[in-house]
Amino acid sequence: MSASVLFDAPGPKTRRRSLIISLIVLALLIAGVVWIAFTLAQPRESSGLTLPGYFAPSRWDIFADPVVWAFIGRGLLNTLQAAAIAAVMALVIGVLFAMLRTSVYAAVRIPTTVVLEFFRGMPVLLMMLFILLVASTGAFWAVVIALGIYNGAIIGEALRSGLASLPRGQREAGLSLGLTRLQTKVSVEFPQAFRQMLPVIVAQLVVLLKDTSLGYIVGYNELIRTTMNNLASFYGNRYLFSLFIVTLVIYLAVNLSLSWVARRLARQRRGGAVTPGAVPLTGDAGIGGSSVMAGASDPADATTE
């Protein structure tokens, strides 16, 4: 039975047509890939020299050397390290921002809003440059602090909307039990808001990991700088293409597994624990069919930055 309600269960004719279109598309894709691979594999003439094709062993032989892998591993480690420290910082700053932004005192709330909008509207790269030039902290801390503040601002906003989506009764119940406003916020409202917003926060942390690659531009030796700059200039530019492919594969492996975790969290939240005030969703069989994540509350949408 078809998962989509947009078209009938296909009959024999439609099935055949769909199969034919599928085969044509597949054939075109395969032809395209083969053509690209073939073109890349051809030796090239360049100013009298014949350069080997891009799949020639002489362009890939450095990867037999464990030293190169150790170097790449160090780059990956630097990326993960910056991301881990920045993630902790972003969470702390996010909680702080959400607290101050929902304060009952206008004197606290309004300046926080202004600062938050400022940080949210500014490119991370510019913030990195700012910290690098003004505070002269070195590239590592420039990357970490900028990512921490920027993502902290975004997580703060997410938490605030999580707080806003809680039923008022939660806060009123806390207050009527004799807790102070701060106690209510810390021990009643925040834990719920945090759980509600967990998918968004995790997705934002994936973005944070991707953004550590900006360290390439400000001079921090993360993965891209290690492979594309240091290794490529050490072994020569003819390895540039191979190094690029290796870098891409590493990034995809790391990010796809993290995204998978984020998605699992999102699904668990939807299927599992009932949250007060949660909007009933239509379930997985959305109109788009075969969707991994249905619903407009898709965490990955909030996360382009």
Partner: peptide
């Protein structure tokens, strides 16, 4: 799942190289 830096690197540096 690819960082923007890597996409732009491909367009600005790998493509001319190819």
């Amino acid at each position: 799942n690819t960082p923007l830096t890597l996409v732009l690197f491909f367009c600005a540096i790998i493509l001319p190289y190819l």
